[in-house]
Design a protein around this nucleic acid. Structure first.
Lengths: 245, 245
DNA sequence: CGTTTTCTTGACAGGGATCAACACTAGTGG
DNA sequence: CCACTAGTGTTGATCCCTGTCAAGAAAACG
């Protein structure tokens, strides 16, 4: 439970008491191999899944074989924020790397949240942020060029991973294959390859053996129209400003 | 308050009691001209805006002048579902046609919802559906061609408007300009024009003087990979199946 | 009615897709 | 430990979908 708690503490100003509650409610740690579905059969449907480690993705397949990854889940992320939505979109959530996760029964989480405004606010914050992420993703697909999309994606990963302490000064592990990046950014894998070369040749970043190094963060953000505000990662202080639930 | 109530009744099985509560909480009816922002200054920030009539859109402008419409709000739609999110993305919500709307104070709505599971479930349903709509929109931008995007959009409008009784047998009013359709579907307005001609020439639909007529719904859905399931419009029965809040 | 917005059309350029090899890496089993 | 295999990354050639620019036609509007 470290990643999610780090994230909620730094992002939403979750209190030590809220942290304790989360640790208490969390079920046993479970594992999923890469390329397997997270929500398997034996799982209680009315549970919120929390990613502890590894990368997972929510995808959607079209009838003609095209695939779109709708969102990427990083360590600390909650699937179906707040865990209230029914067993719905849960299918098609699969591990992209080996993933460690845990689950929290919705009923108990909701009960706890209603008693701890602090916890409830943190969960709302998470819902807010993850829908903002999807919205920005949508803007990328609609109005950003290939290189801009990838640049924006990496800038986003950089902030999100930073929140859970997975960024060491200049870079981070980025386990997605080019083909997965393609399904994520609405491009072909060949063109992802070429766009990456473009970004590399401009000296903005390098990506080798699953490790991304950002050489010029300022410039990378500029060329991909990245404004970190939507991630609300500056967190605690800001979060406290809307305590009115 | 007719459109939102129709929608929640048919979509989420909202009870007469829930309807009454909503009517009670609703503020006075307000109006906004086309091409003006909905959330103006004099508005209490902690209020949920409900569209009674007309079309509105949430958009995002990029630094270089490109615009992306993130979501379209039709009669009956709630902005920022459940109204819990802070005053955040509220900016950049503007009327695309003259719009009639009303507002409900968040605090009172939440209080009412916590007493009426029925109402609370309906609000969750709305949140679920509107995020599913955005997700499907994302899939469109990523993996559908121009004609498919427009076709999918029209199929979606058809179902959503049907839910509030704005579809008369073969068609409905579709007030968006081609340039707005472009900003919505991530295309240029010129190419929207040509794609519309494509759809027309295939006998799938016609669009003249702001009225869309669908000639071959089956086929239009097929070519745009439209599956109405994500809209959960079949509603009441389904909704009751997850009464466990 | 004139004026402005919207729609339509043409010519052209370009970003990105597709197809097809080939190199490289990593995991597998003998 | 090494060949074998499958997945991933890289490159080139080619095509076409879509964007851009520009100018008319049509429609909306006051």
């Amino acid at each position: 439970m470290d990643a999610p708690i780090l994230k909620l503490r730094r992002g939403a100003g979750l209190s030590p008491q809220g942290e304790a509650t989360l640790r208490e409610l969390a079920g046993p740690v479970r594992c999923a191999d890469a390329h397997t579905d997270l929500v398997t059969e034996g799982t209680p449907l009315r549970a919120l899944t929390v990613i502890l480690d590894g990368w997972a993705g929510v995808y959607r397949d079209l009838a003609n074989g095209r695939r779109q990854i709708v969102s990427i889940l990083l360590p600390g992320d909650l699937t179906e924020p707040f865990g209230i939505l029914p067993a719905f979109a849960a299918r098609s959530l699969s591990a992209l790397t080996p993933v460690m996760f845990t689950q929290i029964p919705c009923a108990r989480l909701r009960a706890a949240a209603s008693l701890q405004p602090d916890l409830e606010r943190a969960l709302w914050w998470d819902l807010l942020v993850s829908s903002a992420i999807e919205r920005e993703h949508l803007v990328s697909l609609g109005r950003r060029s290939a290189s801009e999309r990838l640049g924006h994606l990496f800038c986003e990963f950089h902030v999100r991973l930073g929140l859970v302490g997975s960024v060491d000064k200049d870079g981070f592990d980025m386990p997605l294959t080019q083909s997965e990046l393609a399904d994520l950014s609405g491009l072909s894998s060949v063109h992802v390859n070429r766009s990456l070369q473009d970004l590399r040749s401009r000296g903005l970043l390098s990506l080798q053996s699953r490790r991304l190094t950002i050489h010029d963060l300022e410039e990378l953000r500029a060329i991909s129209f990245f404004d970190p505000a939507y991630l609300h990662a500056d967190g605690a202080g800001e979060a406290r400003s809307w305590t009115h639930l």
